[in-house]
């Protein structure tokens, strides 16, 4: 069975790209344009991993993560912050979440593969 990877991203060109890249890497992409929708879908879709953009509305990546780990109780699901912002690393390090990683845009196909492989083997 093909594992699902949920991509939460509000930038359509990147969603379009990720659709192709994730497929290329052999996973089934679940494309979601915002955090709230992602939270609605996450139980139903049950992805193996979440690629999460940070700068989004109406809730940003951090808020999504907080709800996911808190209210939704999904503490084990790997989340890779997928961002172009340089301030993410510092904040991420403070969170000390073993199931949280970061990939800084632009990410090459090789880096993306390696990044996902860290969690999904």
């Amino acid at each position: 069975m093909v594992r699902k990877i949920m991509i939460v991203e509000d930038d359509q060109p990147i969603l379009d790209l990720m659709d192709l890249l994730i497929r290329k890497l052999g996973y089934e992409p679940v494309l979601v344009p915002n955090g709230l929708e992602a939270l609605e879908l996450i139980k139903k879709e049950a992805p193996a991993l979440v690629l999460l953009d940070i700068m989004m509305t109406p809730i940003n990546g951090w808020e999504f993560l907080e709800k996911l780990r808190g209210e939704y109780g999904m503490r084990q699901i790997p989340v890779i912050l997928f961002t172009a912002s340089p301030l993410v690393d510092e904040k991420m390090e403070k969170m000390k979440d073993p199931h949280l990683g970061v990939l800084t845009k632009p990410v090459s196909l090789a880096d993306l593969k390696a990044g996902i492989a860290r969690y999904l083997g």
Partner: peptide, 17 residues
């Protein structure tokens, strides 16, 4: 940085692809 990097993602991604 955010604004400069974001558009690079599709370029890099599609070239890789």
């Amino acid at each position: 940085a955010y604004e400069l990097r974001t558009p690079l993602q599709p370029i890099m991604g599609y070239i890789n692809l």
